[in-house]
Amino acid sequence: MKTILNVIWLVLCGFWMFLGYLLAGVLLCITIIGIPFGLAAFRIGVYALWPFGYTVVERRDAGAPSCVGNVLWLVLAGWWLALGHIATGIVLCVTIIGIPLGIANFKLIPVSLMPLGKEIVPSDQPFATR
């Protein structure tokens, strides 16, 4: 079932959201200071491309630098990407078939706003607990 959802997701919104994350990652990697943010954008972009079967968990070892980085991320790219998820989520929720995809889009908003200090892991692995 998750493969079918991922393929439908890829066609309807996953590819476009991936391109948004890719653009944000490339723009952030232009400066040396922005490279960690660019890498986070690439990591979440791959997750936005194929989200079903994966989950986001908090990293216990993330400290204050992740918090400061998340504030910078929010200002630089996070709110743009979150607006993209909100817009595509609303459009997907218009049809009955798109409702699960719209809900998945809304679940990507927190990680698009604050990606540092989080890890994307497969859902079926034992360490993928919240």
Score class of each variant (00 low, 15 high):
residue 92 L to F: 05
residue 19 L to I: 14
residue 56 V to N: 01
residue 40 A to G: 15
residue 113 L to P: 09
residue 54 Y to N: 12
residue 39 L to Q: 11
residue 130 R to N: 10
residue 44 I to C: 09
residue 18 F to M: 09
residue 69 G to N: 00
residue 18 F to T: 13
residue 31 T to N: 07
residue 95 T to H: 02
residue 64 A to R: 15
residue 22 L to Q: 08
residue 87 A to Q: 00
residue 127 F to L: 09
residue 83 L to R: 11
residue 57 V to Y: 04
residue 46 V to M: 12
residue 106 F to K: 06
residue 18 F to V: 11
residue 116 L to M: 15
residue 86 I to N: 01
residue 129 T to W: 04
residue 107 K to H: 13
residue 73 W to H: 07
residue 101 L to E: 08
residue 64 A to N: 11
residue 29 C to P: 02
residue 59 R to V: 12
residue 11 V to Q: 00
residue 86 I to W: 06
residue 59 R to G: 01
residue 48 A to M: 08
residue 59 R to K: 14
residue 74 L to R: 11
residue 67 C to V: 13
residue 62 A to L: 14
residue 51 P to R: 06
residue 55 T to V: 12
residue 71 V to K: 15
residue 99 I to T: 08
residue 52 F to P: 03
residue 28 L to V: 02
residue 128 A to I: 02
residue 66 S to T: 14
residue 53 G to R: 15
residue 61 D to L: 02
residue 74 L to A: 04
residue 91 V to F: 14
residue 112 S to H: 00
residue 38 G to F: 14
residue 98 G to S: 06
residue 84 G to W: 03
residue 96 I to K: 10
residue 22 L to I: 06
residue 1 M to L: 07
residue 12 L to M: 13
residue 36 P to Y: 12
residue 34 G to H: 06
residue 16 W to V: 10
residue 47 Y to V: 11
residue 77 A to I: 01
residue 94 V to Y: 12
residue 67 C to T: 13
residue 76 L to N: 04
residue 95 T to S: 03
residue 60 R to M: 05
residue 108 L to N: 04
residue 33 I to V: 15
residue 86 I to H: 01
residue 124 D to R: 05
residue 124 D to Q: 06
residue 78 G to E: 03
residue 34 G to D: 01
residue 111 V to Y: 03
residue 95 T to N: 03
residue 115 P to H: 02
residue 5 L to S: 14
residue 77 A to H: 04
residue 99 I to N: 03
residue 126 P to N: 06
residue 106 F to Y: 10
residue 48 A to Y: 01
residue 110 P to M: 14
residue 99 I to S: 06
residue 22 L to P: 02
residue 45 G to H: 06
residue 39 L to T: 10
residue 52 F to D: 02
residue 25 G to W: 09
residue 103 I to S: 04
residue 68 V to N: 07
residue 5 L to C: 08
residue 78 G to C: 07
residue 108 L to Y: 04
residue 120 I to C: 00
residue 122 P to E: 08
residue 34 G to Q: 12
residue 105 N to P: 03
residue 34 G to P: 09
residue 6 N to D: 08
residue 53 G to I: 03
residue 80 W to Q: 05
residue 92 L to E: 15
residue 90 I to Q: 05
residue 67 C to Y: 12
residue 124 D to W: 04
residue 65 P to W: 08
residue 26 V to C: 09
residue 125 Q to K: 14
residue 12 L to A: 13
residue 46 V to C: 09
residue 110 P to H: 07
residue 20 G to L: 11
residue 81 L to T: 01
residue 128 A to H: 12
residue 10 L to K: 14
residue 73 W to K: 06
residue 82 A to E: 00
residue 76 L to I: 15
residue 8 I to Y: 07
residue 49 L to E: 05
residue 115 P to M: 11
residue 102 G to C: 03
residue 104 A to H: 09
residue 79 W to H: 08
residue 55 T to D: 05
residue 34 G to I: 13
residue 55 T to P: 07
residue 13 C to N: 12
residue 80 W to H: 06
residue 70 N to S: 06
residue 25 G to E: 07
residue 123 S to P: 01
residue 122 P to C: 07
residue 55 T to F: 04
residue 96 I to S: 05
residue 75 V to K: 02
residue 97 I to W: 00
residue 80 W to R: 10
residue 27 L to M: 11
residue 83 L to E: 00
residue 33 I to K: 11
residue 3 T to I: 10
residue 97 I to Q: 00
residue 88 T to Y: 08
residue 61 D to I: 12
residue 89 G to P: 03
residue 41 A to M: 08
residue 113 L to E: 13
residue 29 C to F: 09
residue 50 W to R: 03
residue 27 L to K: 03
residue 92 L to H: 04
residue 19 L to F: 13
residue 65 P to M: 07
residue 19 L to R: 13
